[in-house]
Write a protein that binds this DNA or RNA. Structure first.
Lengths: 143, 143
DNA sequence: CCGGATCCGCAGGGATACTG
DNA sequence: CAGTATCCCTGCGGATCCGG
């Protein structure tokens, strides 16, 4: 399911020049958004929901390996606040809450697609770089 | 300079099906890389170097607004270790150290390009979503 | 002087226990 | 089941010091 679907809106701008950010207020805003969005857990949750469509709390927790309940709740709430995720509570017992991407969240997950592809394509180069770095370190002359 | 240059390698795979990650070891590796790369400072440094080509420590510090010296050094060192950045020390007085992206780092910055475009395109929608969320909160019946 | 290492105070994240 | 509350500890930011 992790297919690199192209977001038409992004594709449309992909080969046109992006107006270089001039307005510092806009720049700060964009940087702020990057700050919230360029987060490990945000990205992994985004991916999990993009792959699975709709997930319940516990399902999401299982898909996003290693996340704590606190960070799952916290991150998903901020994503809801930012309009990336829709949270639906079914008032039954036992409780049933499911999460799904909004169109906005879906567009972001598509924007991140290139990064996933990059990671899948280049992870071996990173490992090589780390080994080379470690080798250089140990080979250094310690004055 | 923030142009959405297309990475040929990514573009080539963009419309083909990505082999769904099956090997859990690879998956863990990719998630690990995402964990390091999906970081606010990493992304902002990547962007600064992509825009400017080569920067000295202090220049980089000025381009990446709000970063502390500690996080700048720390992040840039990890990026060097992962092969994203090349760090060149000129042994002169006063010291002169400059940073530039490796081809690997450059390819990552291109992969992140879609996210920048997304942020620039949708930041107003996020703000609206936040206001709507706040309005819904204040309009709630508090039990 | 530049680049960065070090120390410290505090916020943020992890693990666990508890509740509607 | 889906969180909240609590404790604890890592990790970040800010200030200061240092080597070249």
């Amino acid at each position: 399911m992790r297919k690199p679907e192209a977001d038409p809106e992004i594709e449309a701008r992909r080969y046109g020049p992006i107006p270089d950010k001039i307005d510092p207020a806009i720049e700060a805003l964009v940087d702020d958004i990057i700050g919230k969005v360029a987060d490990k857990w945000t990205m992994l949750i985004l991916e999990a929901l993009h792959e699975n469509g709709t997930l319940r709390y516990t399902e999401l927790r299982r898909k996003v390996e290693g996340i704590s309940q606190k960070m799952l709740t916290q991150t998903v709430r901020r994503m809801e606040e930012d309009g990336l995720v829709r949270r639906t509570v079914h008032p039954i017992i036992p409780p049933h809450v499911d999460y799904t991407l909004t169109p906005l969240g879906d567009s972001l997950s598509k924007a991140f697609c290139g990064v996933w592809i990059w990671a899948e394509t280049h992870y071996d180069e990173i490992q090589q770089a780390r080994q080379a770095f470690a080798a250089a370190r140990s080979g250094e002359v310690h004055s």
